[in-house]
């Protein structure tokens, strides 16, 4: 009985880590889409860039594999830099053009990243991926549950910092310019704000956060493979944001919790109810369920559960009264 309880708590911790890691990617997407209206279909690709960058940066170089042997926090920063730079490059190419070009190019980036992850074996480990990635505090002599709790704690601290930083940014004049551009580009441009420059900044920063999410995934699981970063992953992050409420950072967090919960519960159900030969089909049906949920959310509740908070001015209420 006691053992069961420990196992259950360990599961809850790893579930929490999963929610928090994906929440970081969702917060990045919220900055791009929710705040700025930039359509990124290649979330999985950017997250994968971060995951592989940090895994390679922290790995110890050996025969047949590349590694820089850097500490984990440096690896995370490196991942953010590379993913942010890649996003900036995509932005430079496409942000001056039609909105669809950005979407299609990000889709292409995800395809190419997947291709590189699968085929550049010396760098990425190929289809089998990379394992034995450095995990912080892994050397501490504590039981499994202790490790789970420590991982949850340090990831939670990172997510809290990201959340607080984003809330500050969104409320700052910079964040207001982003929303102004999203709502009415011409009006914002008439006030002297360069649309391309601000969008580029938001896109690159959102991409850096996605890179961080990838690095966190690598350093919490200790294992990454191309299969972790398919279009279904992108789709999941989008579902989180739309269901939680685009434009609201708390919505992004809530959406992550809901979608990962739905994913885990349906996964457990499918695993216990369906016979083994139907498991793959059951997994496919889970995606259909989330797809239908997403379509319904867009149609019936386009603002999501927690809609964007209208913040015209803090002083408006005072002026009214």
């Amino acid at each position: 009985m006691n053992l069961d309880w420990v196992g259950w708590l360990t599961y809850v911790c790893s579930f929490g880590v999963l929610v928090l890691v994906q929440a970081v990617a969702c917060l990045g997407l919220n900055l791009q889409w929710g705040q700025t209206g930039l359509f990124n279909v290649g979330v999985a690709g950017i997250v994968a860039i971060g995951a592989y960058a940090s895994a390679i940066a922290t790995a110890v170089a050996q025969v047949g594999a590349v590694g820089l042997g850097l500490p984990v926090p440096v690896g995370c920063l490196f991942a953010m830099g590379i993913a942010g730079a890649a996003s900036a490059l995509i932005g430079v190419l496409t942000l001056r053009l039609r909105a669809d070009y950005l979407a299609i190019t990000t889709f292409g980036v995800a395809v190419v990243v997947d291709l590189v992850a699968r085929n550049a074996t010396t760098l990425t480990g190929g289809p089998l991926g990379m394992s034995a990635i450095a995990r912080p505090f892994a050397s501490l002599a504590v039981p499994l549950l202790g490790h789970a709790l420590i991982t949850l704690a340090w990831v939670a601290v990172v997510v809290l910092l990201v959340y607080l930083g984003l809330e500050r940014l969104v409320g700052s004049p910079w964040g207001r310019v982003l929303r102004a551009l999203r709502e009415d580009e011409r009006a914002a441009a008439a006030l002297g704000k360069s649309p391309t420059r601000y969008r580029l900044q938001a896109f690159a920063l959102g991409g850096a956060l996605m890179g961080l999410a990838g690095a966190l995934e690598a350093h919490t699981l200790g294992f990454i493979a191309p299969e972790n970063f398919t279009a279904a992953f992108t789709f999941q992050i989008w579902a989180m944001l739309i269901i939680g409420g685009a434009g609201n950072n708390r919505g992004a967090l809530l959406g992550s919790l809901l979608v990962v919960s739905l994913w885990s519960v349906t996964g457990l159900l499918a695993g216990s109810v369906l016979p083994p030969d139907l498991q793959a089909r059951g997994a496919a049906l889970r995606l259909v369920a989330i797809g239908v949920l997403l379509a319904l959310a867009i149609l019936l509740r386009p603002r999501g559960l927690l809609g964007e908070q209208v913040a015209v001015s803090r002083h408006l209420d005072e002026a009214d009264s």
């Binding site: 209206g37 359509f39 279909v41 909105a99 669809d100 979407a103 279009a231 279904a232 789709f235 989008w238 579902a239 739309i242 793959a280 089909r281 059951g282 496919a284 049906l285 889970r286 995606l287 259909v288 989330i290 797809g291 239908v292 997403l294 379509a295 867009i298 149609l299 386009p302």
Partner: peptide
């Protein structure tokens, strides 16, 4: 329905969701 609301990018986004759901349905 989305087009009537005038949000072009939301239509593209929805089509991404439709794509995922259809592909998974075919696989199921």
């Amino acid at each position: 329905r989305l087009r009537e609301r005038g949000a072009t990018m939301t239509v593209a986004m929805a089509s991404f969701g439709v794509s995922m759901a259809l592909r998974a349905l075919l696989e199921a």
